[in-house]
Nucleic acid binder design. Structure first.
Length: 494
RNA sequence: GCUCCGGUAGUAUAGUCCGGUCAAGUAUGCGGGCCUCUCGAGCCCGAGACCCGGGUUCAAAUCCCGGCCGGAGCACCA
């Protein structure tokens, strides 16, 4: 009985601490500065799944307060990526929309002595922070800081000349609290705001304010931000703003597949991969192109992703299995013959067989017209000796008579499937060439594997021409593939 | 180096907060079988784990201490 219950138990998301239905506000904070990868997709799905679970509210909020990193095209690529994943958000904003708000909060804190303007060099500051030492600017009075702040805003201070710092605890074990920089001058146009602002908040300030003004109740993020919690909380505390609950978990890693945007960018720049949607990559564009479905991603997150701080290194097999379950019932079967060998039939058939597009689902059929020649995979042909028998699926059993240059001579015996008789796929003479790009594991250890992308070429039955680009098929005894372009498929998984 | 956080089968997870129902559940992968006109799907069976050492307790995967191993952070990036 207990056994029974355990088996049928469905996987669910764990409760969020302190969450109640209808009162959960979450946020999805991408920085529009690079390619969206599966990690972003998972974060999106996690937030969205919780939004659904509690009937809460989800913000899509672009963390775009570093004009030098942000690029306009990425805003939309994230929107598109999340949309494709099935993530729906209730409202959207950019951190860069609220510059005046940051300024007014900064002024409040400057008056209260919670912030100070500092013109130490970066090197000096690093040294002081490491030693826990205070600089001369820290103890100046509020009016001095206000004046400098006004000069910063007016553009009189150039980049690097002055920053605004948090008056924290220079001795703190948590170095994030040792008077971090909260505003700096950036003389670089912003893709959305142009030259309107040169004084930009850093991550900690912008996030602290935004999470409060968005009414965020739960911050779900990766644990590398762990050390910022206290800082962000203190910033809000000084402003009388409410703090959220943090749920922090380790980042997601996939075997042999780097997810860091920096590393992906390097691979592209070095020409190791063919672009940001190279099927070996862990980008959302690659996953999509390769034939992974949003349903599978969602199921994966729901059932196999834990919000825990322990290291996770997922193997692709799990995603394959889930994706297979999603696509199998709706994916048509076709015959593709890699590395084809000619089989000449001593007794020509001259038949047209109609074969089903799917073994169980009602998807209709396709026709194959056979004369005296068929092609079978080299892998199978190489094992056949005169006298051997094999079944050409849906067509006939054949007996090998002879091996000749470039193929096999066989005799069609007719008949049906027999127990123990191997069934193989084949294509008729009237078939066309096809290439399948097979992505492998990009990394073996530390170095990229140059052999990780291979191409299998072969013959496919004529019906293939009618498959639309972007849709999936299963090439029997080969695997699931997606049509990438005319004559080119990408191997999804077995 | 300093600080913080982790450690359940090959992998991902459930269980850990509130010790007994855990001789540890699930999925995937692996081995075997059945079924099937695919090496796919489905069904059945099997092997496989509480990092190590102490302690507390009638009882420890669960609590405490130490060790080992792993990860993260130490930016005018986010």
């Amino acid at each position: 009985m207990a056994e029974e219950r355990r088996r049928s138990e469905e996987r669910r998301l764990p409760e969020l601490p302190g969450a109640s239905a209808g009162a959960v506000v979450l946020r999805l904070p991408p920085e529009p500065s690079g390619y969206m990868h599966l990690g972003h997709a998972f974060h999106g799905l996690i937030n969205y799944l919780y939004r659904e679970k509690y009937g809460g509210f989800l913000w899509l909020r672009f963390e775009d307060t570093n004009p030098r990193k942000v690029r306009a095209e990425y805003y939309d690529s994230y929107r598109e990526g999340f949309r494709w994943c099935g993530v729906k958000w209730d409202a959207e904003k950019n951190n860069s929309d609220d510059m005046d708000l940051y300024y007014s909060y900064a002024e409040m804190l400057l008056e209260l002595g919670g912030l100070y303007v500092c013109s130490c060099s970066q090197e000096e500051m690093a040294k002081q922070r490491a030693e826990g030492a205070e600089c001369s600017h820290r103890s100046m009075d509020a009016s001095w800081h206000m004046e400098k702040w006004d000069r910063m805003l007016s553009g009189a201070m150039r980049e690097g000349e002055a920053v605004v710092r948090f008056k924290g605890d220079l001795q703190s074990q948590n170095t994030a609290l040792r008077d971090p920089v909260l505003f700096r001058v950036v003389e670089h146009p912003h893709p959305l705001k142009g030259d309107r602002y040169t004084v930009w908040p850093t991550y900690d300030f912008a996030v602290a304010i935004q999470d409060a003004v968005c009414g965020v109740t739960h911050v779900l993020r990766t644990s590398e931000f762990m050390f910022r919690d206290e800082l962000q909380d203190q910033i809000r505390q000084r402003l009388g703003l409410r703090n959220p609950v943090y749920v922090e978990y380790s980042r997601f890693e996939f075997e042999g597949t780097p997810l860091s945007r920096r590393r992906i960018r390097e691979l592209i720049e070095q020409g190791i991969v063919r672009g940001w949607d190279d099927p070996r990559l862990g980008t959302v564009a690659a996953a999509r192109r390769r034939g992974f479905t949003p349903e599978a991603l969602r199921e994966f997150v729901k059932s196999y992703v834990a919000l825990t701080p322990s290291r996770k290194l997922y193997s692709w097999d799990l995603l394959y299995a889930i994706n297979r379950r999603v696509i199998d019932p709706k994916t048509p079967r076709l015959f593709f013959v890699p590395d084809p060998r000619r089989v000449v039939l001593k007794n020509p058939m001259a038949v047209k067989v109609s074969v089903p597009l799917h073994p169980s689902a009602d998807m209709g059929s396709r026709a194959l017209e056979v004369g005296d020649t068929v092609f079978i995979p080299g892998r199978d042909a190489d094992l056949l000796k005169p006298g051997d028998r094999v079944r050409l699926k849906y067509l006939t059993n054949i007996r090998i008579l002879d091996r000749v240059e470039g193929g096999i001579v066989a005799e069609a015996e007719g008949g049906g499937p027999e127990p123990g008789l191997q069934v193989i796929q084949w294509v008729p003479e009237k078939s066309h060439r096809l290439e399948v790009i097979v992505p492998g594991m990009l990394f073996r250890g530390e170095v990229p594997d140059p052999q990780s992308l291979s191409t299998v070429s072969g013959l496919v039955e004529a019906y293939e021409a009618s498959v639309p680009v972007g849709s999936a098929v299963q090439f029997e005894r080969f695997g699931y593939c997606v049509k990438d372009a005319a004559g080119v498929y990408i191997f999804t998984h077995p």
